[in-house]
């Protein structure tokens, strides 16, 4: 009986404490919300954002050519929507990956010009369109490289295994900014005289080298998760080593690694912002250069909140897209 009342007392005191705590937190949240709303509407000066929207999107791309990056971003967004809806027609579904890969040459063509379009030098690329280009390009190059490295690390050839391991481990031990810095300052030193690669492509090269090591580890995790019996079943059907890798191992490893690969993609999208301190004017770089403009001096909070929202929106969108893809490709646990 005594124990019973003690228990009740304890429960009561916990509930009382919990209730008071909740009330206090709600009060703080409420005050914070009112304060923030007040600031957002009355104190903040959003001109630094509203007057410069085209700059955030396209950087210093020639004004009469802005339709080109715009067209590219629109095509990417509509492809995302199509992917999200998940078309029922089989041929449409099968051509989706190809369409995604095709957006890359399309983007490069639209940004750089040629073949009927006026050329635009890469130093005029900027803003969100440059951020997206850096992300997509590096990702699409890093994926096959990562797959090769993962296979290399699993290889039976000791030399290939060692080399892949050394590459992956040392790349993962180094800060990204050091690799990007290597890309900007050191690559020119390793090229023959007269050969030059411009800043954007050097950045993409460095991002690719860096991300491929991380992708390799994610895919290796996927490879290791495939039961050995899958390989046996495939070998029994007479498939050779290459066919087993191509038809059985890689597709399954990619599906298993998809959540991890999504995180890499989101991380890469955020990390392209590092180029802002290494000489490219991508999304964050635009924000920095606007803050250096006397007209908008001191408008840090507005710019940062705006940029954070754009990054947040895109990253969340990427996560949603990937989760959708995951659901569709899911290998449900077979009832074994």
């Amino acid at each position: 009986m005594i124990k019973f009342t003690r228990n009740i007392k304890r429960t009561l005191s916990i509930n009382l404490f919990n209730g008071l705590l909740t009330l206090a937190i709600l009060l703080i949240i409420g005050l914070g919300f009112i304060f923030t709303l007040n600031w957002l509407i009355f104190s903040a000066n959003w001109k630094v954002v509203t007057l410069n929207l085209p700059l955030y999107a396209f950087g210093s791309f020639p004004v009469d050519q802005r339709w080109r990056p715009a067209l590219w971003i629109i095509s990417l967004l509509s492809l995302s929507v199509i992917t999200l809806i998940g078309p029922n027609r089989k041929w449409l579904r099968k051509s989706l990956p190809l369409a995604w890969i095709a957006t890359l040459p399309l983007g490069i063509y639209l940004l750089s010009g040629g073949l009927g379009l006026p050329m635009v030098m890469s130093r005029h690329w900027g803003g969100l369109s440059l951020t997206i280009l850096l992300t997509e390009c590096s990702l699409l190059f890093a994926l096959p490289l990562g797959i090769f490295l993962a296979l290399g690390r699993q290889s039976e050839l000791p030399l290939v295994k060692t080399l892949s391991s050394i590459y992956i481990d040392s790349m993962r031990a180094v800060p990204l900014i050091a690799v990007l810095f290597f890309g900007q300052l050191l690559i020119p030193l390793f090229l023959p005289i007269g050969v030059e690669i411009d800043r954007v492509w050097r950045a993409i090269f460095a991002f690719t080298l860096f991300v491929s090591a991380y992708i390799a580890e994610d895919i290796r995790g996927g490879l290791q998760a495939i039961p050995n019996t899958q390989i046996e079943a495939a070998a029994t059907l007479g498939l050779n080593q290459f066919q087993i890798t191509h038809f059985i191992l890689i597709p399954q490893a990619l599906r298993i690694a998809l959540p991890a690969l999504t995180n890499q993609a989101i991380g890469l999208f955020q990390n392209t912002s590092l180029m802002a301190i290494l000489g490219l004017i991508e999304l964050l770089g635009i924000g920095r250069s606007l803050l250096a403009n006397p007209e908008f001096i001191g408008r840090y909070i507005e710019v940062y909140i705006w940029l954070a929202s754009v990054y947040w929106l895109f990253c969340t969108f990427m996560a949603v897209l990937a989760r959708h893809l995951e659901k569709r490709l899911a290998i449900q646990k077979t009832n074994i």
């Binding site: 019996t229 899958q230 046996e232 079943a233 495939a234 029994t236 059907l237 007479g238 498939l239 066919q243 038809f247 059985i248 597709p251 399954q252 599906r255 490709l329 290998i331 449900q332 077979t334 074994i336």
Partner: peptide
């Protein structure tokens, strides 16, 4: 020589038809 396993060992990422067609197309 064909083999059937205790745990079936179908390829989970391929449809039933694709499971069956894979080897005849790729191997034969």
């Amino acid at each position: 020589v064909g083999m059937v396993f205790q745990q079936f060992n179908l390829f989970p990422h391929l449809s039933i038809l694709e499971n069956i067609v894979l080897a005849p197309v790729q191997v034969q």
